[in-house]
Amino acid sequence: MFENLLALYPGAFITDHPPVLGQEKFHIFHNEAERKWISIPEKSISEKELDLLGAIYVRAEVPSEKLPPMLQQWKEYLFEGAEPPAGFEGEVIRLIQFEFRGENHDREELEMAIKGFFPEDILVLWEGSGSALAVERGKYSLDERDLASMAGAFESDFYIKTRIYIGRRLTVSDALPSQFREEQNYFDLAKKDISSEGYYTFEKVFPAYVASLLPRPLSEALNAVFAEAFRSDDEMFTTVKGFLENGSNASLAAKKLYIHRNTLQYRVDKFTDKTGVSLKDFNSAFTVYLACLLYDRDRETN
């Protein structure tokens, strides 16, 4: 466990995403099972200990290239508390996070592919070898469908799993770095607790965030009402969750779930018969969706 190493190496820290480092030199190791990175100050660890940790964990690449001035400004602004980049203050931008899972990819080719999807010039800042951040400016934004197709294109063209977090439109100001850190946390939560999808947004992730913060008595009360029905019929659970995630649109949900619309309606009606809860109004749908998220999370944990 990385947490045990913190006591051994003063100055070490753990992150849920590849770290972006300042001037001090670190050795970075990746725990693939927990999807965490630990950064250990170079001066705190011996060569023998490096070899030992390298045999247990994945030794992560430390980016050493000299960044162009504009990218260096953005790195210092977002990660190191510097002033906003010159000429950007007050401008509305969108930060889009990419995670690439797999070793067989060329960073330059991926960056060219990312830029090729956008109608205007964007900045791409790499966070380690498998994560990138796109700074999108201008009024011509790609919509969610376009960005979702990016994930599919990277998977088919580069044979790597790709996940994308589409940030909100934000104003470049002193507040933006903390807003970006929140979006990083939402992305980390999505990768852990939400079924694998090509892309995530604030609206898609926030209900799971709310579910993760529910006090135990509330989550247990919700599980007591619905968990038994979900356990009794996995297909029914998947259908109800998919139905709610698609705006309670039966035709769209059936298409996404690859089932007939009548099959979907049968399973939704079956859920109502088992629980006594209809999904026809907003309050019921919201409550049941929270229950779905809790059940899904607990099932993954178990």
Rank of each mutant, 00 (worst) to 15 (best):
M1H: 14
F2L: 12
E3F: 07
L5R: 05
L6A: 04
L8Y: 08
E24Y: 08
K25C: 00
A33S: 15
S39K: 02
E42A: 11
E42V: 00
E47H: 13
E49G: 03
E49H: 11
L50Q: 12
D51E: 13
D51G: 05
S64K: 11
Q72M: 14
K75S: 15
E76M: 09
L78R: 05
A82M: 03
P85Y: 08
P85M: 14
F88C: 10
G90F: 08
E91H: 14
R94E: 09
L95I: 11
E103M: 09
E103Q: 12
R107I: 13
R107P: 07
E108P: 01
E109T: 14
A113Q: 11
K115W: 04
G116F: 04
E120P: 00
E120T: 13
D121F: 08
W126Q: 06
W126G: 06
S131Q: 15
A132P: 00
A134I: 05
L142G: 03
D143Q: 03
D146Y: 01
D146T: 00
D146R: 03
A148H: 03
S149G: 08
A151G: 04
F158A: 09
T162E: 15
I166L: 15
V172N: 03
D174P: 00
A175E: 15
A175T: 11
P177A: 05
S178N: 15
S178G: 10
Y186K: 15
L189A: 11
D193T: 00
I194C: 03
I194T: 04
S195Q: 14
S196G: 11
G198Q: 09
Y199F: 15
T201F: 07
F206Q: 13
P207I: 01
Y209E: 01
V210N: 01
A211R: 00
A211K: 00
S212Q: 12
L214C: 02
R216W: 07
R216H: 09
P217M: 13
A221F: 08
L222N: 02
E228L: 09
F230E: 01
R231M: 09
R231Y: 07
E235K: 11
F237Y: 15
V240A: 03
K241H: 00
G242K: 14
N246C: 08
N249D: 13
S251R: 14
S251M: 08
S251T: 11
A253S: 09
A253F: 04
K255A: 12
L257R: 02
I259P: 01
H260T: 05
Q265N: 12
R267K: 15
V268H: 02
D269F: 06
K270Y: 03
D273L: 13
K274Y: 02
G276A: 07
D281G: 00
V288H: 00
R297W: 02
E300S: 13
T301Q: 10
